[in-house]
Design a binder for these strands. Structure first.
Lengths: 199, 199
DNA sequence: GCGCCTATGTTTCCGGCGTCAACTTTTTTG
DNA sequence: CAAAAAAGTTGACGCCGGAAACATAGGCGC
């Protein structure tokens, strides 16, 4: 009992969890405030005591998504050794999360569903960004003496991996008969940073 | 009068145009079937004669978006000369379009709003993809003798430019006080394909 | 030029949605 | 143990997308 709500026990967390479950089952169309409340067994007006409208609830869902996203990438890392390997591992983790939880991933980056000014969401997002930032360090030399080389490397890496993920989710990449992209992210990354002596 | 509908004149096109205008004015939340119909001065049930529900109408809007997107990139091209220059010009065009029409751009890649199985949308999307494909040709040698080198280059380039655009729109990149990204797309692209003898 | 036919648009109704105000129940607190 | 505050319920509102029934207006056969 971290927090101690009076009636339900922990309605706030229950609503977020139910929201994520409902999102994966029914997709974004099925994710209504009323449906989430019903799944928890509570009236449709109850969430208002804990969240600022449906936007607040979805924002909390997005934040939880970023936490899981960061954990997902981190868990895929340690088995790998070389620096280039680590980089690929985290990138692959980013893409895999998107493919495993397409609706959640989409929600996490939707300004329509989430309020990116929310402090909790920003904290969770930063947690996720931190993992990418770490592995972007190896790309820094690519930018030579340019100012903000590290940040440029981060932005580049994030752009590739995020763009690939979204295009894959939308089904816009070349795919096989099952809808699986023909080329994985590691097949598509040109040999940079890894070619000229990396690890 | 290309087509000659009976009452309105060309309700189909009028609805799409009104939808885009409304989208830019009121954002995705304001883009309802009823609001679009009202703007054209028609009842909310009229669009159903021309589109398969609100999804069909939004799909048509997305298709028109892709056509404008392709034209936007093409128009930015001819002034440039070198091959690396051409590449940057198209990439910058991609990003600029997203920044100039954020809601339309978002809609164009939203599986929630658009039906990507729609033939018209696929045709329009292919038009847009063609521009990127052209300029990706220069990156092909990066992939050596790998199979599908051309497609890998296309996927890579599209991923970067699309990821950057979306992250910029969402406001997740490092920005100045006005919300403008600190690093432009051409600042974050690492020196590949252009460094070792390009044009 | 008249009568049908079909394309186009309207009206009306339905259920679901998010929000709000008023009310009830439960827990805390002094 | 009583007052207050927190948590949840009920019922209403307006907007939404969809469907069915109806109205209108051009096209076409004759």
């Amino acid at each position: 009992m971290d927090e101690k709500p009076y009636h339900h026990g922990d309605l706030k967390r229950a609503l977020v969890d139910a929201g994520i479950a409902l999102l994966e089952e029914a997709g974004p169309q099925g994710l209504s405030l009323r449906a989430i409340a019903a799944r928890v067994g509570v009236s449709h007006a109850a969430p208002r005591r804990h969240f600022d409208g449906v936007l607040g609830l979805k924002t909390a869902i997005a934040a939880e998504g970023f936490r899981r996203h960061a954990a997902f990438m981190r868990d895929g890392l340690p088995a790998q050794t070389g620096r280039g390997d680590r980089r690929f591992a985290a990138m692959i983790g980013y893409v895999r999360f998107a493919q495993a939880h397409p609706h959640l991933f989409t929600l996490m980056f939707s300004t329509r569903d989430a309020d990116f000014a929310d402090p909790e969401l920003q904290r969770a997002g930063a947690e996720s960004y931190g993992v990418l930032s770490d592995i972007a360090a190896g790309l820094e030399p690519l930018y030579g003496d340019a100012p903000d080389a590290r940040r440029r490397a981060e932005t580049f890496l994030w752009s590739v991996v995020h763009g690939y993920s979204q295009l894959a989710l939308t089904g816009l990449l070349h795919t096989d008969a099952h809808g699986t992209p023909l080329h994985r992210i590691e097949d598509v990354m040109p040999p940079i940073g890894t070619a000229a002596g990396d690890n």
